[in-house]
């Protein structure tokens, strides 16, 4: 018997189904608003401390010191930022001028990020594309560093610096932080996904290992490098314990450490307006990097942790 292909007779919309449809539409609208509400709340809670700080940095010291916490920007912004930037204010716990500290932080972050990327690229290249005795030993040695955060070995590392007389502070500040298991693992992971055929084609084209690295591998790694750079720049900028320990020359103070020093014991008499301006200066560069390079940042973050 041939299959029945006649159309079913049109059926009227049942009244209970009509009610259900209306209710469903209403529920969906309510849920959408609720989603917006929660996200907005999250955004506001996240932004609240920053907003207070931004506002505070535009008032004079006495307004804040009195405790009349302003919620809208004032008129002293320019002078506060100028004071923070050029002199570090005149408070009791004075730090170096924020301008200098920003420069130090930027230099430290750049050195750490580029250093980490450079040596990680090279070592990942060696581990993935060569077969040599001790290859696995080298890999595991690097891998081990992943397990030893700088904080747990802080005192002995500090002693190494003392023993090596590595008191060219910028070198002492950055070099110990440059070895990076994370970056090496990321590049290794990425290199392993590069089709063998590229290497074979390059070999047939007559490219040697260094040439392959420069002409093929490096250009292919550009997005990974950019992604990693964002993460590592922030990592470097936000270093706290190590600079706190190593830097005893005020002219080399980084802004994160300097800011914390300005707080002192948190007295109400602090020059809060300048401190707040310094806080804004301290968080602005890494936040800008994250917001402007968001795509790379998210990629870098989720891929380094695979």
């Amino acid at each position: 018997m041939p299959p029945d292909t006649t159309l079913a007779a049109p059926v009227a919309l049942l009244p209970q189904d009509a009610t259900l449809a209306v209710r469903t539409a209403r529920r969906q609208r309510r849920e959408r608003w609720l989603t917006h509400f929660w996200l907005l709340l999250g955004v506001l809670v996240f932004a609240l401390p920053i907003w207070i700080t931004l506002v505070g940095s535009t008032h004079d010291a006495s307004t804040i010191g009195r405790g009349d916490v302003p919620l809208l920007p004032g008129t002293h912004g320019l002078e506060n930022y100028a004071a923070a930037f050029a002199t570090g204010g005149s408070g009791r716990f004075r730090a170096s001028p924020a301008g200098l500290m920003l420069w130090n932080s930027a230099l430290m972050a750049m050195l750490i990020a580029t250093g980490k990327i450079a040596i990680s690229l090279l070592s990942a290249y060696a581990v993935v594309f060569f077969s040599f005795p001790g290859r696995m030993l080298a890999f595991w040695t690097i891998f081990l560093t992943l397990m030893l955060p700088v904080e747990v070995r802080i005192i002995p590392t500090y002693q190494v610096i003392v023993d090596l007389d590595l008191f060219n502070p910028m070198a002492g500040l950055t070099i110990p932080l440059i070895a990076s298991a994370t970056a090496t693992l990321l590049f290794r992971q990425f290199f392993l996904t590069i089709p063998d055929e590229y290497v074979e084609a390059a070999k047939i084209d007559g490219a040697g290992p260094l040439r392959f690295f420069r002409d093929i591998l490096l250009p292919l790694s550009v997005t990974n490098i950019a992604a990693l750079f964002v993460i590592l720049f922030i990592y470097g900028w936000n270093q706290y314990l190590w600079p706190l320990l190593v830097v005893n020359d005020r002219s080399l103070e980084t802004i994160v450490v300097g800011l914390a020093k300005m707080i002192g014991s948190g007295d109400a008499q602090n020059e809060w307006n300048v401190i707040m301006a310094t806080a804004v200066l301290a968080l602005l560069p890494p936040v800008l990097v994250v917001v402007l390079m968001q795509r790379w940042f998210v990629k870098g973050l989720t891929e380094t942790e695979k």
Partner: peptide
């Protein structure tokens, strides 16, 4: 996403 970029010490100050 952006608070990720804020240093722990700066977060404390905020």
């Amino acid at each position: 996403i952006w608070p990720y970029a804020v240093a722990p010490a700066v977060a404390a100050v905020l």
